[in-house]
Computed example of a mutant assay.
Amino acid sequence: MDFQLSDDQRALRAGMRELLTGRFGRERMRAALDAGVAVDRGMWGELGAAGFFALRLPEADGGVGLGLPESVLLFEEAGRVLLPGPLAATHLAAGAVGAVGAVKGAADGGAVVAVLDEGRPVAHLEAADALISLGPVRPGGVARVLEGDALRELVRTARPVRSLDPLTPLHRVTAGVEDGAPLPGATPLRLEGALLAAAEQLGSAARTTEMAVQHAREREQFGSPIGAFQAVKHLCAQMLVRAEVARTAVYAAAVTADPAEIAGAKLLADEAAVHNARDCLQVHGGMGFTWEADVHLHLKRAWLRAGEWLRAAEAEEALAVDLCRVHACDAGDP
């Protein structure tokens, strides 16, 4: 079996990179930071027009008709540029629950969909046109959609929470969503969301590796580029290894959609994003954590994203259960 990207997949990834570089480059990202605009409706509409949210909808329903591997490629590019907003929730809503009320507009970028997960802070709640509540982590769980007056009341009673990431506003929700429209399949939604978050983490890990290498080539000490020193070489090499191991896991999980592989991919991608950002800071020295640099923004987003959809403890538990099952099968137990 050939796991190399096809020409069409490479073209899809290159097209999204070109779009994001042109429409959400560093200047626009910095402008969003200065203005405190976490969800740019104009950019959201452009993503919808480019098929970002409708990628996996059938062509007969106005979608692109592609699969989870292609979605992972797009989300990897979004992670590279730190594109803000509830991307995974809106992408999933377009395909999974697109027939429900306001969520019908998710496919073309006309609606912003946030996610509520087990009482954790909700990202981008004030900008949301609809909210998906995933419920407890258990097989057969039921997700719910909240919108309209019920969502506005929820937003009114929510409490702002200080966020690590300046482009990810958070709110603590205290009211329940039992009256929301029920949706079967909370577990598949959670797993796919975890994989898409892992793809964003992968993009961030790859980008911080590039940033570290570029700085190591340009910054000089004692008359030589700092990249000539062995300690810096080792940091950059370790960053590359982490990113490529995570890439292998994320791409494989996108092909198999196996829950255990998704859990492993999320663990590896979270580790790569967080540790690569830390090592990139180390290469940059003290300037890396100044407001003018972008490195600290990758670290803050990586910390925050590591707690979304599938946290480390949950992923480890899923892997442990799968290993026990495999071991029992190998031993001949029922």
Rank of each mutant, 00 (worst) to 15 (best):
V173H: 06
V173I: 13
V173Q: 07
T174C: 05
T174S: 15
A175P: 02
A175H: 05
G176Q: 13
G176L: 14
G176R: 13
G176K: 11
V177M: 07
V177K: 00
V177A: 15
V177L: 08
V177N: 08
E178G: 13
E178L: 14
E178N: 10
D179E: 15
D179H: 14
D179F: 08
G180F: 10
G180L: 11
A181M: 10
P182R: 12
P182H: 13
L183M: 14
P184N: 07
P184G: 09
P184Y: 09
P184D: 13
G185Q: 12
G185D: 08
G185K: 13
G185E: 10
G185R: 14
G185H: 13
A186S: 15
A186V: 10
T187K: 05
P188E: 04
P188C: 05
L189Q: 02
L189P: 04
L189S: 04
L189E: 03
L189F: 09
R190K: 11
R190Q: 07
R190W: 08
R190V: 09
R190T: 10
R190E: 09
R190G: 07
L191H: 07
L191N: 04
E192L: 12
E192I: 04
E192K: 03
G193M: 08
G193C: 09
G193Y: 04
G193K: 01
A194M: 04
A194W: 01
L195T: 04
L195E: 13
L195R: 00
L196Q: 08
L196I: 10
L196V: 11
A197K: 00
A197M: 06
A197L: 06
A198M: 10
A198V: 05
A198L: 10
A199L: 06
A199V: 02
A199P: 02
A199R: 01
A199W: 03
A199I: 01
E200K: 12
E200S: 11
E200G: 08
E200F: 03
Q201M: 13
Q201Y: 00
L202W: 10
L202E: 05
L202Q: 06
L202N: 05
G203R: 06
G203S: 06
G203F: 10
G203I: 06
G203V: 07
S204L: 09
S204G: 13
S204K: 12
A205I: 06
A205S: 14
A206T: 01
A206Q: 15
A206S: 07
A206K: 15
A206G: 15
R207C: 06
R207E: 14
R207V: 01
T208L: 08
T208I: 09
T209Q: 11
T209Y: 13
T209M: 05
T209R: 12
E210W: 02
E210S: 12
M211A: 07
M211Q: 03
M211K: 00
M211R: 03
V213T: 02
V213Q: 08
V213C: 03
Q214I: 02
Q214P: 00
Q214C: 00
Q214W: 01
H215V: 11
H215F: 13
H215M: 06
A216D: 05
A216R: 05
A216K: 05
R217I: 02
R217P: 00
R217Q: 07
R217V: 04
R217C: 04
E218L: 14
E218G: 09
E218Y: 03
R219N: 02
R219I: 01
E220Q: 08
E220F: 05
E220R: 11
Q221Y: 05
Q221P: 00
Q221N: 00
F222D: 02
F222R: 02
G223Y: 00
G223D: 01
G223I: 03
G223K: 00
